[in-house]
């Protein structure tokens, strides 16, 4: 996915409930490529309800742009619901697997960082550690920043998945 980040604009997380078919998925991606909207990450998977799928999109843009994105998504025939989670209390998670070089500083220092981020060590070789981290995108970003100086050999991020919190009061149990 494109990772061009327009810093002056706001990051939006959109949760889109659709009929499960690849044509619909392609139509939705096509809106972003065809109309020149930003797309940071996208996840697509089946919903609990058979025949349905949920697409979680993170995008960047000002309010007007994101409103247009919203409207265009709504215009796709097989889209049932679009929820912009940006200004709502939501539960958002992303998973990343990061292979870090231990050549410079040895394993303990890297493991200490992993511990601080509540990341798990899932593979160890002579010169690398593979870490699994989950959290909101900011947390994953932060951990990657901290690990960069040690040398990230490879990395895979899942993109965000998110849902609206049932309780919209001021509670944060992250």
């Amino acid at each position: 996915m494109s990772t061009t980040v327009m810093t002056k604009d706001y990051r939006h997380t959109l949760s889109v409930l659709v009929k499960h078919n690849l044509n619909t998925f392609s139509r939705i991606i096509g809106i972003f490529s065809g109309k020149g909207f930003e797309l940071e990450s996208v996840t697509f998977a089946s919903e609990a309800e058979p025949g349905m799928a949920r697409i979680t999109i993170t995008t960047y843009g000002d309010e007007k742009t994101v409103e247009q994105i919203n409207k265009h998504l709504h215009n796709v025939v097989d889209v049932l619901k679009v929820t912009d989670l940006t200004h709502k209390k939501c539960i958002e998670r992303e998973l990343a697997i990061i292979k870090v070089s231990t050549a410079k500083v040895g394993r303990p220092e890297i493991m200490l960082i992993a511990q601080a981020f509540k990341a798990k060590v899932i593979d160890i070789t002579t010169d690398k550690l593979a870490l699994e981290v989950t959290g909101n995108t900011d947390k994953v970003d932060a951990m990657i920043e901290v690990l960069k100086p040690y040398g990230i050999a490879e990395m895979s991020r899942s993109g965000s998945v998110a849902l609206k919190r049932e309780f919209q009061g001021a509670v944060n149990i992250n």
Binding site: K64, E67, Q68, K71, H72, H74, N75
Partner: peptide, 8 residues
């Protein structure tokens, strides 16, 4: 009738 035409 098309909301995406409004404010575009």
């Amino acid at each position: 009738i098309d909301p995406s035409c409004i404010g575009k």
